[in-house]
Design a protein around this nucleic acid. Structure first.
Lengths: 233, 233
DNA sequence: TGTATTTTTCTTGTCGACAAGTTTTTTCTG
DNA sequence: CAGAAAAAACTTGTCGACAAGAAAAATACA
C-alpha cells in the first residue's frame, strides 16, 4: 500500500466517503492491498486528511460487499480469497455470465451495443500489446457492459461482486498469462457480440457458457501450475 | 413505526449497531415502516438511547442491501418497491429458487433435511391456522434453509435479499390471501423436500421452477386485483 | 393575494475526544 | 533465564458538538 499523503486541500461535503471507498476498493481489487492486509483507520485518516468517521463508513460498505472483514474490537482486514470453496465462485460466475448475456441479447439497445463494442476494442488492444493488467480490467468492463444491457439490477449487483473477486484471483497470476488464450477470448467476445446483436438468446447463452468454462479452466490451470511450482520449491 | 422508547439500560460494546440494524430491518420487511418512510437519525438515537454513530452505521449497511435509500444531505428513507420493474425481481427470484433447490438436492446433509422439515412443519401449521403473516415468514425460512443446504454464499446472499423483498410485497396484500393456494404450497413444498432427500437434481429443478411460477403468478394476481379495486374507487 | 426573497429551523456529514478492549512491552518471580 | 503477571501503548466503538446544506417559515414586494 502506498503511504504517501494525498493532496486533498478542499473536499465537498459528502465526497469523503466516496473517495475513501473508491481508493480502498481499487487497492483491494488490484491487490495493492493483498488479502489479509490490516486496514488502520487512523493511518488512513491521516493520509487522506479527514476524520475517522467517513473512513469507517466506507469500511462498513466494503464489508457489506465482502471485500473487507471486520474483526470485532480488532483490526479490519482485506478479505481472504477462499481457495477451498472456489467451486461456489465458479458456479455462480458461470451462471451470471449466462443469464446476463441472455438478457443482453433480449433487451440490448443500439447504445448498449456501442458501449459493449467500445470495451471489446479496449480489450483487443490490451491483448495486442500483451498488457495482462489491462486485459483483466477491460475484460471485466466488457462483461459488466453486457450485464448492464440486460437491465436486471439483481444480476448486475451480484455479477459485479463476482467479477471483482475474479479480478483479484487473476491478478495473483497475471504474470503467468498464456499468450495463446487471450486471442481465443477476443474471438469468443466477438461471437458473443454477434449473438447479442442478432438477439439470438440461445446462442448467447451457449457462447457465454463456453466462455465461462474457458475462464474457469484457465484459472484452475493457473492455480494448479502455481501449486506445482510451490511444491517444486 | 412505534415510538415508544426501548429499555436498554446496559449494552455491550459493539452490540449497538446490530440492535439498530435488526430493529430497522424487521420494521422495514414487516412494513411497520412502509416504503418512503423517512428515518430520522436523532429520533432513533433517542428512542434507543444511543448516539447517532451506530445508527448511521446500521443505515449504511441497510443501504448496501437496498432496504433504505440515502438521499445526500437529506433524509434516509425506506426504499420503494419498484412495481414498474417487478419482472426483473420475478426473473431473479425464479432463478434463485431453481439453483438453490438444485444445489440443496446435490449437497444436502441429514441435518439440512431436518432443518428444512422443521420449517415446513411451521409453514404447514401457519396454513392450518390461516395465519397469513406466519405463512409469509415461515415460507421465507423454509426456502432460506434450502438455500443454506446448497452452501453457496453468493446464492444465499442474493436469495435472502430477494426473499426479503418478496416478503415486503406479500405483506402489502397479506389480508387478501386466497385460502385455496396455501394448501397447494404445502404440497409443493413436500414434493420439493422429497426431491432433495432423493438427491434428484432434475426433479428439484423442475419443482422449484413450478413453485416459483406459482408464487410469481399469485403476486401478479394480487397486484392486478388490487389495481382493479383502486380503479373501482 | 400571490410570488419572490430572506431568515430561521432542522437534518445530515464531519470532527475531535474519550471509553472499552486488545496487543505489546515491561516487570516480577521461580 | 523462562514463564506469568502487571502495565503501557495502541486500536476500535461510541459520544457530543459543530458546520454545511436543505426544507420550512417569515418577510418583502408586486
Amino acid at each position: 500500500m502506498s503511504t504517501k499523503p494525498i493532496s486533498t486541500p478542499e473536499r465537498k461535503r459528502g465526497e469523503g466517503v466516496k473517495l475513501v471507498y473508491e481508493i480502498l476498493r481499487d487497492d483491494i481489487i488490484d491487490l495493492v492491498m493483498p488479502p489479509g492486509s490490516p486496514i488502520d483507520e487512523i493511518q488512513l485518516a491521516e493520509r487522506l486528511s479527514m476524520s475517522r468517521t467517513p473512513i469507517r463508513e466506507a469500511l462498513v460498505r466494503l464489508a457489506g460487499e465482502g471485500l473487507v472483514t471486520t474483526l470485532p474490537n480488532r483490526s479490519t482486514v482485506v478479505s481472504n480469497i477462499d481457495f477451498l470453496n472456489l467451486h461456489t465462485f465458479f458456479d455462480a460466475l458461470t451462471l451470471m455470465y449466462r443469464v446476463t448475456t441472455r438478457l443482453a441479447a433480449e433487451y440490448r439497445s443500439t447504445e448498449d451495443l456501442a458501449q459493449i463494442r467500445a470495451h471489446q476494442a479496449a480489450f483487443t488492444h490490451a491483448v495486442e500489446t500483451q498488457d495482462a493488467l489491462a486485459m483483466i480490467s477491460t475484460n471485466r468492463a466488457f462483461h459488466a457492459a453486457i450485464a448492464e444491457a440486460g437491465r436486471n439490477p439483481y444480476y448486475t449487483g451480484l455479477f459485479s461482486r463476482l467479477l471483482d473477486e475474479g479480478r483479484r484471483i487473476l491478478r495473483i497470476y497475471y504474470s503467468s498469462f498464456d499468450d495463446r488464450l487471450p486471442q481465443e477470448y477476443v474471438d469468443e467476445h466477438n461471437d458473443i457480440i454477434a449473438a447479442i446483436e442478432a438477439q439470438d438468446i440461445a446462442a448467447a447463452d451457449r457462447l457465454a457458457s463456453q466462455h465461462a468454462d474457458q475462464i474457469v479452466n484457465q484459472i484452475r490451470r493457473l492455480i494448479s501450475r502455481d501449486r506445482r511450482q510451490q511444491i517444486a520449491l
